[in-house]
Amino acid sequence: MPRLDRNGDTSVSIEFEGVAISAFEGDSVAAALLSNGYRNFRDTPVNGASRGAFCMMGVCFDCLVEINGIGNIQACMTEVRAGMHIRRQRGARDIHAQDGSL
């Protein structure tokens, strides 16, 4: 998705589902994923339906992703950091799977 022209951005590299993508410092994870064309962020634990970012202000809890092994993180409320490993949240969070920190 196109970005509007900006002054002095610092680009960072992150990973989504194992694919390296680029983002900019100050981006929320949600903005970074959307700007790379990813809309589907997770499957719900209730019916397995696909969901993505909706409110972009921390209200709806629909943009949940797994970051560095920690599940159910609000992508719209989390800023990207270089080297972040982001995955889709698949159903309910697996709390044993965590292997790192933000």
């Binding site: 634990p45 159903g91 309910a92 969070r93 697996d94 709390i95 044993h96």
Partner: peptide, 20 residues
Amino acid sequence: EKLQPFLPFPCATIRQTGEG
């Protein structure tokens, strides 16, 4: 929040519900 099943027994002060 809903978690993957990890607690197969109900306990006096902790239980995991069917929803997780």
